[in-house]
Amino acid sequence: MERRRSLPDVLAGGIFILIGGAFVAGALGYELGTPLRMGPGAFPLLVGLIVAGLGLAIVVKGLVAGEVIAFGPVPWRAVAVITVAVLFFGFTVRGLGFVPTSAVTALLTTLASTRVRPLMAVAVAAGLTAASTLIFVVGLQLRIPLVGPWLGF
């Protein structure tokens, strides 16, 4: 297998260093305690250092003899649309209620595909909303109001 400089390796290592480092910095703010009675900060500090250390090793290896991986295209539209759709669900399900939130989330999600036609998107969203209302609210007795207080109910 061919080995050379690898951008994905450096990126992955960078993420590990970033998250590990953040936890280390946070853990220093908690009591570390003694080996006999370890404080809340000790274990995260230790593991955070390991994560950051492994991240550093991955970066170094990525610069010297990285794994040859094609990063490939990123479906930006899908990333953006799905992120918004799921956040929308979490943010509004209590206020708008189950049915409107599900309908909007489903409609938004269908737009993630570049091949979807408007009519099909509406049909899929309507079908999924009906199905999930039947399964979760009627079938499983989920305690979420069908229509929420924001809409005047």
């Binding site: 759709a85 669900f89 989330t105 999600t109 091949r115 899929v124 999930s132």
Partner: peptide
Amino acid sequence: QVLFPMIILFASIGTYS
């Protein structure tokens, strides 16, 4: 195109519940 919106919606509802 039908499958993935279903997964996203059911996942959101399931996790919230």
